[in-house]
Amino acid sequence: MGDIAVIGLGAMGRPIARNLVRAGHDVVVWNRSDGPADELVAAGARRAASVAEAVRAPVVFSVLSDDRAFAETFLDSGVLTHARGGAVHVNLATVSAGLARRAEAVHTGHGVAYVAAPVFGRVPVAEAGALNILAAGAHGPVDRVLPFFDVIGSRTWRLGERPEQANVVKILGNYLIACAIQSLGEAVSVAEGAGVDPGQLVELLTSTLFPGTVHTGYGSMIAERRYQPAGFTTLLGRKDLHLALDAAADHGIPLPTGELLRAVFDQAVADGRGEDDWAAVTEQQPRATAADRRT
């Protein structure tokens, strides 16, 4: 069995696995559908016939979409009985704090270390091997997987010894992005109503008050009303917003803005924007046309 297995070859899993192959690691891959695995095998990876075979690797990375997919694949299937003692499983997905706690307990029961390592960075960042990795778990297992993190990321942030801590930080980061998207949409909506060119507004704001990838990237998408191809869908954004609300509720802390955003995201999905980029939630705001701005 190889150095490392990568389970889940979606938009993020593919570049992560490819970079590990390019770095010279012996990579075993598994995916529900064959196409992504075929692509990685052609690049030099080896295909596992099943998840049970893949988890026999000494280090396993998984990049699955949500709590349900992760639980079905690893926690409820009995597949961890096939893992080798002393293995490390790194979950790169954004999942709830509650699932992280359950996952750690189940893995410990099978003699497998569990590390949470969600990431900041979209697909192009993953392709460049420049992700920011939010890692939490016992020191020894995290130390063991740092060389792999160095391949796929530009920096690893060690956030604590409890895996859930990394997931909470990731969820809060996505929550703040959702807040920024909504506020950008509100500002663009008012500016359009006053006849201001939205592109010029975004250029001004991101060149002065709000530089950075979030306001620059999402601001241009909102100004241009460009929501495809989706880098991160509204459905996924709604999932992470609900995770943030749940995490806050766990600690008895209100998120008033989050409650407002819940209604915005729910309506955007109801309006058929679930597969658009989550910047599309700003279409819930009144938007002026170019002709309106000229009058």
Rank of each mutant, 00 (worst) to 15 (best):
R287A: 12
T206G: 02
L40C: 03
A37E: 05
R18D: 07
S183A: 14
V123A: 08
A103D: 02
W157D: 14
E275R: 15
L261K: 06
V142I: 12
A87Q: 11
R56K: 12
A97E: 15
E164D: 14
V6H: 04
Q182C: 02
G195P: 00
N91D: 05
A191V: 05
R226H: 13
A93M: 02
G219M: 10
G217M: 10
E192I: 03
L80S: 08
W30Q: 00
F149Q: 03
R47F: 12
V169E: 06
A230D: 01
T289E: 05
D3Q: 09
A268D: 06
P147M: 09
A178V: 02
V123D: 01
W157V: 13
N91E: 04
V142N: 00
E283K: 10
N91S: 08
E72I: 04
A288Y: 06
T216D: 14
P286I: 03
I133T: 07
V269T: 11
R68A: 14
L146H: 12
A105E: 15
S220H: 15
E53I: 09
V112F: 14
L201H: 01
E164N: 13
P124Q: 08
L131P: 02
E53K: 02
V145N: 06
R144N: 00
G98S: 05
A57I: 09
P254I: 00
V145M: 09
M221Q: 15
A191R: 09
A138F: 06
W278P: 01
G153V: 04
T282A: 05
L176Q: 11
D292A: 13
I171H: 10
G44Q: 14
I7K: 13
G153A: 07
I133M: 02
S77M: 04
P229G: 11
L260I: 10
T282F: 06
V188S: 05
R287V: 12
A116H: 10
I253H: 14
G173H: 09
E127Y: 05
A87L: 11
R287C: 07
A52K: 11
G121A: 01
S154R: 15
A97L: 04
R293I: 07
G185F: 13
E104K: 13
A268P: 06
R84M: 02
I133E: 00
V51A: 03
A187E: 07
A103C: 12
I16A: 02
H139C: 06
D76Y: 13
H242N: 15
Q200R: 14
R238W: 04
D292M: 11
P256M: 12
E53P: 03
V41R: 11
L176N: 08
P36G: 06
V88Q: 09
Q165K: 14
A249Q: 06
A57Y: 07
F265Y: 15
G185E: 09
P141G: 07
V269F: 13
T289K: 09
G217I: 03
L64E: 08
A126G: 09
P36H: 10
A135Q: 03
E39N: 10
A71H: 01
Q267S: 14
V169I: 13
C179R: 11
T233I: 04
A135S: 00
L64A: 01
A116D: 13
S189Y: 13
E104D: 15
I171Y: 14
T234D: 08
A128T: 07
G219A: 04
V214Q: 00
G193C: 06
A138W: 12
G111M: 10
F265N: 01
Q284W: 09
G35L: 02
R294D: 13
L20C: 11
N174T: 01
P211M: 05
M12N: 01
